[in-house]
Deep mutational scan, measured.
Amino acid sequence: TKIIYHMDEEETPYLVKLPVAPERVTLADFKNVLSNRPVHAYKFFFKSMDQDFGVVKEEIFDDNAKLPCFNGRVVSWL
Rank of each mutant, 00 (worst) to 15 (best):
T1S: 02
T1G: 00
K2G: 06
K2W: 12
K2H: 11
I3P: 00
I3C: 03
I3T: 00
I3Y: 02
I4Q: 09
I4V: 10
I4S: 06
I4W: 08
Y5L: 08
Y5S: 01
Y5D: 03
Y5H: 02
Y5N: 00
Y5M: 05
Y5R: 02
H6E: 00
H6C: 08
H6G: 01
H6Y: 12
H6F: 13
M7T: 08
M7Q: 02
M7E: 05
M7S: 04
M7L: 13
M7W: 08
M7G: 02
M7D: 06
D8V: 06
E9M: 09
E9Y: 07
E9D: 11
E9R: 10
E10S: 13
E10R: 08
E10H: 08
E10F: 05
E10I: 07
E11G: 08
E11M: 06
E11Y: 04
E11I: 05
E11W: 06
T12C: 09
T12P: 06
T12I: 09
T12R: 14
P13Y: 15
P13Q: 13
P13N: 03
P13A: 14
P13G: 09
P13C: 08
Y14R: 15
L15G: 06
L15W: 14
L15S: 14
L15D: 14
L15Y: 15
V16N: 04
V16P: 01
V16D: 02
K17P: 04
K17F: 11
K17Q: 14
K17R: 11
K17N: 14
K17Y: 15
L18Y: 01
L18V: 12
L18E: 04
L18W: 01
P19K: 08
P19E: 12
P19H: 09
P19G: 09
V20E: 01
V20T: 08
V20F: 05
V20S: 03
V20R: 02
V20M: 11
V20P: 04
V20L: 10
A21R: 08
A21Q: 07
A21F: 05
A21D: 10
A21C: 09
A21W: 03
A21L: 06
A21K: 12
P22M: 01
P22S: 06
P22V: 03
P22D: 02
P22K: 06
E23L: 04
E23N: 13
E23P: 04
E23I: 00
E23S: 12
E23Y: 04
R24P: 01
R24F: 07
R24E: 14
R24G: 09
R24K: 13
R24W: 07
R24T: 11
V25G: 02
V25F: 01
V25W: 00
V25P: 00
T26Q: 01
T26E: 02
T26M: 04
T26I: 02
T26V: 05
T26D: 00
L27F: 02
L27T: 00
L27M: 01
L27C: 00
L27P: 02
L27R: 00
L27Y: 02
L27A: 00
L27G: 05
A28P: 04
A28W: 06
A28R: 13
A28Q: 10
D29I: 01
D29S: 01
D29C: 07
D29G: 01
D29T: 04
D29Y: 13
D29A: 06
F30G: 02
F30R: 02
F30T: 00
F30S: 04
F30P: 01
F30Q: 04
N32T: 09
N32Y: 05
N32F: 11
N32M: 08
N32Q: 12
V33Y: 09
V33M: 09
V33H: 10
V33C: 13
L34T: 02
L34K: 00
L34P: 03
L34V: 06
S35C: 12
S35P: 14
S35V: 14
S35H: 11
S35D: 11
N36Y: 09
N36I: 12
N36A: 12
N36L: 13
R37F: 13
R37V: 12
R37P: 07
P38W: 08
P38H: 13
P38M: 09
V39I: 14
V39H: 13
V39G: 08
V39E: 07
H40P: 04
H40W: 10
H40G: 10
H40N: 07
A41P: 07
A41E: 14
A41Y: 12
A41L: 09
A41W: 06
A41M: 14
Y42P: 02
Y42D: 00
Y42W: 05
Y42C: 07
K43N: 05
K43I: 03
K43P: 00
K43Q: 08
K43F: 00
K43S: 09
F44C: 03
F44W: 03
F44E: 01
F45D: 01
F45E: 06
F45R: 04
F45S: 03
F45N: 01
F46H: 00
F46C: 03
F46D: 03
F46M: 00
F46W: 00
K47F: 07
K47I: 07
K47V: 09
S48N: 08
S48R: 15
S48F: 11
S48L: 10
S48D: 09
M49G: 13
M49H: 10
M49A: 14
M49V: 12
D50W: 02
Q51K: 10
Q51E: 13
Q51P: 13
Q51F: 04
Q51V: 11
Q51D: 11
Q51N: 14
Q51A: 12
D52Y: 05
D52K: 15
D52Q: 13
D52E: 10
D52L: 06
D52C: 09
D52M: 06
D52W: 06
F53T: 15
F53M: 13
F53E: 15
F53L: 14
G54L: 10
G54A: 15
G54S: 15
G54R: 15
G54P: 15
G54D: 13
V55D: 12
V55M: 11
V55C: 11
V55L: 12
V55W: 12
V56A: 12
V56K: 15
V56W: 10
V56P: 08
K57D: 06
K57M: 14
K57P: 07
E58W: 04
E58A: 11
E58S: 12
E58R: 15
E58H: 15
E58C: 09
E59N: 08
E59Y: 07
E59W: 07
E59A: 06
E59V: 05
I60E: 01
I60A: 02
I60W: 06
I60T: 02
I60H: 00
F61T: 15
F61N: 09
F61L: 12
F61C: 12
F61P: 06
F61W: 12
D62A: 07
D62E: 09
D62Y: 06
D62M: 10
D62L: 08
D63H: 03
D63V: 03
N64L: 04
N64R: 08
N64S: 09
A65G: 06
A65R: 09
A65Y: 05
A65I: 01
A65D: 07
K66A: 10
K66F: 04
L67C: 00
L67K: 02
P68A: 01
P68Y: 00
P68G: 01
P68F: 00
P68Q: 02
C69M: 15
C69N: 11
C69V: 13
C69Q: 09
C69P: 01
C69R: 05
F70P: 04
F70E: 11
F70K: 11
F70G: 05
F70H: 10
F70Q: 08
F70T: 07
F70S: 08
F70V: 12
F70D: 03
N71K: 10
G72E: 02
G72L: 05
R73S: 14
R73P: 00
R73N: 10
R73L: 13
R73V: 11
V74S: 03
V74K: 01
V74D: 03
V74N: 03
V74E: 07
V75I: 09
V75F: 10
V75S: 01
S76C: 12
S76F: 01
S76A: 12
S76K: 02
S76R: 01
W77I: 05
W77F: 09
W77C: 00
L78P: 01
L78V: 10
L78E: 05
